[in-house]
Design a protein around this nucleic acid. Structure first.
Lengths: 226, 226
DNA sequence: CGCATGGTTTGATCCTAGTCGAAGCATCTT
DNA sequence: AAGATGCTTCGACTAGGATCAAACCATGCG
């Protein structure tokens, strides 16, 4: 008999297919209503409501009521990181899975992870930041490097607005498709915002995939990849 | 209805208390027999056998038969990393938990994570490695730095024996208690080996905690922490 | 107001999955 | 061989939990 964190309790929350679908649907960091999540999970409204209550009690979801709508979102970046970690082993440890099709390929290339960019592009970007001294691996994880401030200013990102919230500015997040780190934290979120704001890419409505336009991809590479 | 990795399948494997206990017991990277795991999980032998079969099919455990014993261990470092991630949210998202007692305090300070050192000491060590140029954050994650070879030679670790296996030499692993990275990979494993071999510390028999002897702690700090 | 819409609660149903006793294999010991 | 030990399989029992229909609140709109 062991002690330690009650891992079974929260794993069993994720272990139900309906709840897992809901959580996956929220992995893009957005907020959805109970009925949307019911649809997403392929389950009736009462069932969904019950599931959502459990996820709320379990601390995986936060809820906010607006009028007669009730919005649910992931409780925080840690929850998203955990889900990515589970996806990682599901991908490799899972039984013979159909090889990732074209849709999955675009997910591998670029997708939203909670509120920041993930996938091959994001991993390459973080690598470049390190080698160019834009970010550094410091005492408290990832930290701003010497070349950082001027770089981000040139890229149109205002660093002064980032601190102040409770979340760290820089954070590393393990990528389940590439299995290397990409940049999370408020800086990661700001970069994704910038990409979308410039209309270099748009979010797929159905999945978490990010689709770059051809000129957008070039602009992204010119700006963020050396 | 979503696609993507079958997250519910593997989360539900972890979601059963008996299986969660077994997995926790294996988090130290060691191998245990079916009966030991049954005891650890507080469950009968037939039940344990059934659980172990499921964990094996699910790809979370690897098994090896030696004589009439059957040994089980975690399938790989990714599985351990996932479990640590789940522990992380269980720790924060969990409901009012009893504040960590003395035993948990020693776990936070130093413990085994699969096959390498985790906890505050390990996080401080990796930080020091980065600032002293012993390791660097390179294109492919953590990589040997300029000062590395001479440093590890002085510390009694033979780098030439490390590569060759399928696992990376250096890897970052997110620490659930401190929520910052520590060093995994074969180099991380070699450092832990060295610490135990020098008898600077011993492993707690019951938990994953690592207990330094007073002179051992000084030697560790002198050797690995600046 | 009255009605529609979004969400929760209740109650009943059903089924999966965890549990163990007993019997069955396999392997080691004597 | 005969016995002991470690583990798995089989069979039966049970409990927990997922599900939905129907009734019940709450909010917004005309």
């Amino acid at each position: 008999m062991r002690e330690g964190p009650d891992i079974a309790r929260i794993a069993s929350l994720v272990g139900d297919p309906a709840r897992a679908n809901m959580l996956s649907a929220l992995m893009d960091g957005g907020a959805l209503t109970a009925s949307e999540l019911a649809l997403e999970a392929g389950v009736g409204l009462p069932t969904a409501s019950s599931h959502l209550a459990k996820l709320g009690d379990g601390g995986l979801l936060s809820q906010s009521s607006q009028g007669r709508h009730r919005y649910f979102r992931l409780a925080g970046p840690q929850v998203a990181a955990m889900l990515e970690a589970i996806m990682g082993v599901a991908e490799t440890a899972g039984p013979k899975r159909a090889r990732p099709g074209p849709r999955d390929a675009s997910m591998r290339e670029a997708r939203v992870c909670y509120d920041h960019l993930a996938g091959e592009h994001a991993v390459a970007m973080l690598d470049g930041f390190f080698t160019r001294g834009i970010l550094d691996q410091g005492k408290d994880g990832v930290v701003m490097g010497k070349a950082g401030p001027s770089f981000f200013a040139a890229a149109g990102i205002d660093l002064s607005t980032l601190p102040g919230k409770r979340r760290p500015v820089c954070r590393a997040c393990l990528d389940w498709s590439v299995r290397r780190s990409h940049l999370a934290g408020s800086l990661g979120a700001a970069i994704l915002d910038r990409i979308l704001e410039q209309k270099w890419a748009r979010r797929d409505a159905q999945s978490r995939a990010i689709r770059f336009t051809p000129p957008g991809r070039r602009a992204f590479e010119r700006t963020f990849l050396a």
